[in-house]
Amino acid sequence: MTDVLIVIPARYASTRYPGKPLVELTGAGGESKSLIRRSWDAAMSVDIEADVVVATDDDRIKDHAERFGAKVVMTAESCRNGTERCADVLGRIDHQPGIVVNLQGDAPLTPAWFISDLVAGLEANPDAAVATPVLRTDADALRGFKEDRKNDRVGGTTAVFDQTGRALYFSKEVLPYTGRDFAEGEENPVFHHVGVYAYRPDALSRYAQLPEGRLEKWEGLEQLRFMEHGLHVQCVEVEARGRAFWELNNPVDVARIEAILSAQGLD
């Protein structure tokens, strides 16, 4: 079995939402937990054997995470995104894993099977440097994407990939262009990129040495650096199984996520 390390990158100084990892989210039972705590709980529920660490450069996040029992690795302030922070972790631990999973700290609704399916997807594609999950949008999710763009909010990311699943592009715009809405239950071609990654350690170490790509900079999407430098990113389609998925990108997403927690009976 491949040795897996799950890293939860978390930074306090977010441009769009400072202090985001410590934002409190209320679950179905009325209990309030921080975003980083909920992300940690999601990582701990994965049904594969894995070590889990929080990676941060902020003492407030470190202290908070250690209080609820998380392992913490302090990383450099110079890390510009979660992938660079995961790469930094590799240089600060004694044991080198076979696969590193980046469960971003703003995705507390990530179902456990997304991660196990992702690891299996990377193992099944030996030419891939990175694997990442994609989820076909339903009518509600697609409306949410379009509503965010209409109101000039940075919402979810979409993914376009070839017939083998190799990524062609990721964007904060709604791609591909469809020109129309879709009815409930009607299959549509827009896939939500789920912000989780599984890396081979050599690709992760190489990433940290590569210059920021032009598309990466314009879109603000770290995974594009791999593609701009010719590395294979594999999209792994996952199934929602009735679970709603949304990331916390903006303050308005707090209410969205709390509503999902309540509706799905998640404490």
Rank of each mutant, 00 (worst) to 15 (best):
117 D>G: 08
163 Q>I: 13
153 R>E: 10
190 V>N: 06
128 A>G: 02
241 R>V: 04
95 H>M: 07
142 L>R: 15
105 G>Q: 13
145 F>Q: 12
100 V>Q: 09
212 E>Y: 01
43 A>T: 08
247 E>K: 03
198 A>R: 03
107 A>D: 12
68 F>Y: 14
128 A>C: 02
36 I>A: 03
30 G>E: 02
44 M>L: 13
203 A>C: 11
180 R>S: 14
71 K>H: 10
214 R>I: 14
170 F>W: 11
137 T>G: 09
29 G>T: 07
194 V>I: 14
123 E>S: 04
123 E>R: 09
170 F>R: 02
30 G>R: 03
221 L>E: 02
238 V>I: 12
111 P>T: 09
146 K>L: 15
228 E>W: 04
109 L>P: 07
125 N>T: 15
175 L>I: 11
133 P>E: 01
122 L>A: 04
192 H>A: 05
248 L>D: 05
97 P>I: 14
53 V>W: 03
6 I>H: 04
180 R>Q: 15
201 P>T: 06
186 E>I: 14
226 F>N: 09
206 R>A: 14
102 N>H: 11
179 G>D: 07
179 G>F: 04
208 A>Y: 05
113 W>A: 07
141 A>K: 12
19 G>S: 09
227 M>Q: 12
106 D>L: 09
126 P>V: 01
135 L>F: 09
42 A>S: 13
103 L>H: 15
33 K>Q: 12
65 A>T: 02
7 V>K: 02
221 L>Y: 06
119 V>L: 09
220 G>F: 12
108 P>G: 13
114 F>M: 10
143 R>T: 10
46 V>Q: 03
254 V>P: 08
188 N>E: 13
35 L>V: 03
39 S>N: 05
113 W>E: 10
184 E>Y: 08
203 A>W: 07
206 R>T: 12
145 F>S: 08
140 D>L: 11
22 L>C: 04
194 V>M: 08
183 A>K: 14
17 Y>L: 10
46 V>A: 04
66 E>A: 10
124 A>F: 00
34 S>F: 01
265 G>Y: 05
73 V>N: 01
142 L>Y: 07
266 L>T: 09
19 G>V: 05
40 W>P: 06
91 G>P: 10
205 S>W: 08
33 K>W: 06
132 T>V: 13
87 A>Q: 06
128 A>F: 00
57 D>C: 11
59 D>Q: 11
80 R>C: 04
14 S>P: 02
250 N>F: 13
156 G>K: 00
200 R>W: 04
14 S>Y: 09
1 M>Y: 04
258 E>N: 08
226 F>S: 08
114 F>V: 04
69 G>Y: 03
55 A>K: 05
23 V>T: 14
217 K>L: 07
128 A>S: 05
155 G>C: 04
32 S>E: 11
50 A>E: 10
1 M>A: 12
131 A>W: 06
2 T>S: 12
178 T>K: 13
219 E>V: 02
194 V>E: 05
149 R>Q: 12
240 A>E: 11
98 G>K: 02
66 E>S: 10
100 V>P: 06
183 A>Q: 13
75 T>S: 02
120 A>V: 08
121 G>M: 03
162 D>L: 09
87 A>D: 05
52 V>N: 07
221 L>G: 04
263 A>Y: 01
75 T>E: 00
155 G>N: 03
146 K>H: 14
4 V>T: 12
